[in-house]
């Protein structure tokens, strides 16, 4: 078994439930047990906290203190907050992060708004990977007072075309993106997808009949999802060895280099 790179894990507390992996060391133990050699970690605090600077500082510190060398912090940026540019600067210059994570639906902006284009450009200028979480949970099971629709990705294909330097990883997207939108996004070399929300019989195998395997990264959405679900999906699909390796780690490694 070659090492896995999991591009979709999240630290700290999910607001609605305690999770077995919501202590960093427990999550890291689980990941290492399953041969994860690197995990890209956002923070649940980034969803709702306004003091996102301290959320990102804690994320960086947790990864450093308890990550046992496998956690890469991806700080949250909320471009609706005053002086978000300083958060971006700190993520990059102070915490030495390789990328950032965005939650447009939790932060209340649409991808067609100028602020999003500005944020993408600023991240690209700094060479940061941008992760965009399309959703965090099934909208049918959300808290009644916090019902948040998935991000509308409609404007994305056009926007991305105008931002040559960007590298964009769409998290939890593969139940939402289908058909024409998927094909338009795939046509862009800078957009990547991960496996956490991919479903269907032999889902990974079916998807790479539609999109290049180099566009697909392994992601688990742990600890909110059982890590084993993502792992078993790699087993369910019939994949040749080079494709399996590419999805399991190499595509992500190339991206983060």
């Amino acid at each position: 078994m070659t090492g896995l790179i999991d591009v979709n894990v999240t630290l700290s507390r999910w607001p609605f439930r305690r999770l077995r992996g919501d202590e960093t060391s427990a999550l890291v133990n689980k990941l290492r047990e399953h041969h994860v050699v690197q995990a890209w970690a956002g923070t649940f605090d980034g969803l709702l906290h306004k003091d996102i600077s301290s959320a990102n500082a804690r994320l960086a510190e947790e990864c450093h203190a308890h990550g046992r060398g496998i956690l890469l912090p991806f700080g949250s940026i909320n471009p609706t907050l005053p002086d978000w540019e300083e958060d971006l600067r700190r993520c990059h210059e102070v915490h030495k992060m390789r990328g950032i994570r965005l939650h447009p639906n939790y932060h209340g902006y649409r991808l067609g708004e100028p602020i999003f284009a500005k944020l993408l450009a600023a991240a690209a200028d700094r060479g940061l990977i941008v992760q965009l979480a399309v959703l965090m949970e099934d909208k049918r099971t959300q808290h009644p007072l916090l019902q948040i629709a998935p991000v509308d990705l409609g404007p994305l294909p056009e926007l991305i075309k105008q931002k040559p330097g960007i590298r964009l990883v769409l998290l939890n997207s593969l139940q939402v993106i289908r058909g024409d939108l998927l094909l338009r996004l795939v046509a862009n070399e800078q957009v990547f997808f991960e496996t956490a929300c991919l479903e269907g019989l032999g889902g990974i195998g079916k998807l790479i009949e539609q999109i290049y395997a180099r566009k697909l990264l392994f992601g688990s959405h742990a600890p909110l999802f059982y890590f084993e679900s993502a792992l078993l999906k790699l087993k369910e699909s019939v994949l040749d060895e080079s494709t399996r390796k590419a999805i399991s780690a190499e595509n992500a490694r190339r991206l983060v280099l």
């Binding site: 077995r20 991919l198 479903e199 269907g200 019989l201 032999g202 889902g203 999802f225 059982y226 890590f227 084993e228 679900s229 993502a230 792992l231 078993l232 999906k233 087993k235 369910e236």
Partner: peptide
Amino acid sequence: DAGGRSFASQLGKVFGAD
């Protein structure tokens, strides 16, 4: 709930449980 769901993602609920 295959084929809409995958066997794997749902088996994870049992194999991943403590």
